[in-house]
Simulated assay, not measured.
Amino acid sequence: MKKNSKRNIVVVLIIALIIAAIGGIIYMGNKFEKQQELDKEHALYKHGFRLLEEQIAVYIKENYSGISKVEFTDIYNYGDSGLYVYPIITDNHGNRTLLNDSINGAYGTSRGLYALEFHPSSKSEIIYLDNSANGTEIDVSDCRTLPDKAKWKKDSLTDRNFERLLKAGSIKGVEKSDKGSPDMKIVYNLKIKEKK
């Protein structure tokens, strides 16, 4: 009787270990799959925001003189409110300031990126920038750098923010000019930061 009892305990332990192992494999598989989806989503965000940051930087470089550097904050993910990035301007006198001071004036999914998603059937990236040269949104899904057709001819929000910063004295010696700032340094930032 003792032998059967010990054998039954061993069988039960083996079955329990097998069930635990299968459960662990399923859990790790789901976790891995979710991480792959998150990585793919972050790659989409980085691709779209790299093009948006280039669109902003090129506009400033080609239309404003007196600027030594444009750099970008992290990409802030506000969940349902969207994803946003803020340009930081440094003038030739060393003054450094945020170009936008509120989420309403930020660049991102509510302004600048018309579409940032995956195609439902093919799962390929869909990236549309707005305010392009022809005044409508433009497909840049397959672009690694900003195409000429997606350059802004004008951008009233950026222009208003420069006017506000100049009036407040946050930057000096900056003016709208066809000469632009050809030697301006551009620092892109594609780090995603979750905000609550």
Rank of each mutant, 00 (worst) to 15 (best):
K2E: 14
K2T: 05
N8R: 15
L13G: 13
I14E: 07
A16Q: 06
L17Y: 09
G24W: 01
M28N: 09
G29L: 05
K31W: 04
Q36Y: 00
Q36F: 01
L38V: 05
L44R: 04
Y45Q: 05
F49D: 11
R50V: 01
E62K: 15
G66N: 08
S68I: 10
K69L: 13
V70T: 14
G79C: 02
P87C: 02
I88E: 00
I89N: 02
H93E: 14
T97N: 06
L99S: 10
S102Q: 06
S102C: 07
N104S: 14
G105F: 01
G108N: 06
A115L: 05
L116F: 05
E117M: 07
E117W: 01
S121I: 08
S121N: 08
S124E: 15
Y128G: 03
D130I: 01
N131H: 14
N134Y: 03
G135T: 11
E137L: 03
D139G: 05
T145S: 14
P147F: 08
A150K: 06
W152P: 00
D159G: 02
D159W: 01
F162Q: 07
E163Q: 12
E163N: 13
R164L: 13
L165Y: 04
L166H: 09
L166R: 10
K172I: 10
K172W: 04
K176S: 14
K179R: 14
D183K: 14
D183H: 12
I186F: 03
I186E: 05
N189K: 07
E194L: 05
K196L: 10
K196A: 14
